[in-house]
Design a binder for these strands. Structure first.
Lengths: 338, 338
DNA sequence: TACCCTCATGTAACCGATTACATGGAGGTC
DNA sequence: GACCTCCATGTAATCGGTTACATGAGGGTA
């Protein structure tokens, strides 16, 4: 493979001049520039980004660690991150942590060794020593979608409080009084905050929420299914179940269907995370929609801010309620555009 | 950030010894090894993969270029590629070509500059000069899911012929005689071969397929919707529509629903690419399922074979028909496990 | 004691770029 | 013509590892 030295020889100039052409340094004559370009074309030259990175101490690469690319929420996030990064001239390396702390750490380590310029992490529930250590400033780091309590890192996420209050009001208006909530792990902001918002809204509507109605899942489908099963087996099962993410909603849907129950007649369902297929099932699933793509794009901008020496400001964007049919029919819904 | 030199100084050895410890060279004394490990821990040393790659001319990184990570088929493919690569000690960089040749080329160029050890490409319809050039052997290259006519590159893909024949038989058994097929671009194996298999199967069942029933889409939802609309507007619309991938099926589903038509009563639908949500819509969509994850894993193994000097053998795995309800009810179906 | 072998470790070249600094030719001024 | 300035280009150090080869201590043998 041709190196800069070969191009220089072919063009009859020094390697410095070729490097200047590569980096669009204006102090190269038009004529020399052309000769160099011709030489590059003739030799089919491809600059070696590895060598460049070693010298410049910058890889123009970002690392992104997500729960699982098979989860449509993370897929959309990843897509947005990649789009925004590409526009800024960066490449993204994605790691699937699979909601496991050890695999998350594997990718953190690998990406740091690869010297990514910045790291975007959707952290798992557990605060690992490695993540804590990196949060001290080893590399620019931004938490995406979730924050970890006790770890000071700029974050980009959605706030669902208002939307959750709207959802509770919606359920209440449809006559549901016994509402259960399946949250994510309490160490994650997405678990803790959503639970608090739910309980607050329920209290405001004078709804009593027994402890058995507030459950903790792990953001995976099986836990949604298991917990739904347990809820439906209660002596007094809930009239509505609100799932903390789309995968647990999928599990809940399966469980309800397996039991031959009707939605929303026998039990109403709602979910955090609006994903495309919610709009294609019968009945369509009422959900709280996060500005997913925007979260991804903003996260990249925050990292780029840090990289260019600006201060990093955390970003919180509002989530919105998208009313469909899975909680019941009513004349009061808003129409959903899609 | 600590360098190997710092570790060497701290441990009172030379950089060569530290390097030997890093690479598990057995000729280092137990005692020295421990001293070096202690020094690494004390300095929080992280080996610089960029420097290592420059010297060893290997990055232990693979490039994967897919149509779009938002397409569940590609997401599953990417996930499998990443899992298999990780197990072999490789990192994967994913690029979304968005079914656009220019963006595909952007990633091919970028990944080559990053010196990925191998490239897995799900090629877009157009054979670009760049891809052709790379196919000549610049880097190990494997085509995934699709092949390009006229480009000699090992490939890993599914063969749907048998499953398509089964699908046509299934449709025929349910009484459908007018069957339309929406294929992908004819320059792609996934377009060409599926069309041929469909026409052959139709002929075997004595079905006449007018030209207006064989359409070419672009593997995106809008084209599925548009073509479905055109098909339904024909003086003699088809009784069943078979879509060449899951996104076009999504578009078709939307179009049928918008017109208030019943599936399968007014029109039957079937799709290539089985994706999870096909099993959660009403009626559940009959589809041809590819061994997606296996395709991804095998592709990585083929690339690793090439990297270790072994001969690369193309892999073709069979796709299978998964009968559900979107083509009609009948006592003769096979049950689908999920 | 002389010689050789083994083996843990050290020295230094190298990978392919970037870039601070050096160089020297062209052109301007007096 | 002497001198200065400007600027296009060249020279060589550098980034942080790996590794071929050198080295020298220690042990075995005659």
């Amino acid at each position: 493979m041709a190196r800069i030295k070969d191009v220089a020889a072919q063009a009859g100039v020094s390697v410095a001049t070729v490097s200047r052409v590569l980096n669009n340094n204006p102090s190269v004559t038009e004529e020399t520039r052309n000769r160099v370009h011709d030489a590059m074309a003739a030799l089919n030259y491809r600059p070696n980004a590895v060598a460049r990175s070693l010298r410049t101490e910058a890889t123009r690469t970002l690392g992104l660690i997500i729960g699982d690319i098979l989860n449509p929420f993370f897929a959309e996030l990843a897509r947005a991150v990649e789009d925004e990064a590409r526009e800024a001239g960066y490449t993204v390396i994605i790691g699937n942590a699979d909601e496991r702390a050890d695999q998350q750490d594997h990718y953190v380590r690998t990406l740091l060794e690869q010297r990514v310029d910045g790291l975007l992490i959707c952290p798992t529930a557990e605060v690992t020593p490695l993540v804590e250590e990196v949060s001290l400033g080893e590399r620019p780091l931004v938490f995406l979608d979730r924050t970890l309590s006790g770890v000071e890192v700029p974050s980009v996420r959605a706030d669902g409080s208002t939307a959750i209050a709207e959802l509770v009001a919606h359920l209440r208006a449809l006559g549901h009084r016994r509402i259960a909530f399946v949250s994510g792990p309490s160490t994650l902001s997405t678990g803790r905050e959503r639970t608090e918002a739910f309980l607050r809204a329920a209290a405001e509507h004078g709804l009593e929420v027994p402890e058995t109605y507030v459950r903790v899942g792990d953001f995976r489908a099986v836990s949604g299914q298991r917990i739904t099963s347990e809820l439906l087996d209660l002596p007094e099962p809930p009239q509505a179940i609100f799932l903390g993410d789309n995968l647990m909603a999928l599990g809940a849907l399966d469980e309800v269907r397996e039991r031959g129950l009707e939605i929303p007649g026998d039990v109403a369902l709602a979910s955090f995370d609006d994903v495309p297929w919610f709009n294609h099932v019968q009945p369509r699933i009422t959900a709280i929609s996060q500005p997913t793509a925007e979260l991804g794009r903003r996260a990249v901008r925050v990292i780029l801010d840090v990289l260019s020496g600006r201060a990093a400001e955390s970003v919180v964007l509002p989530a919105t309620l998208v009313v469909r049919e899975s909680c019941g029919e009513s004349g009061t819904w808003k129409e959903d555009g899609s």
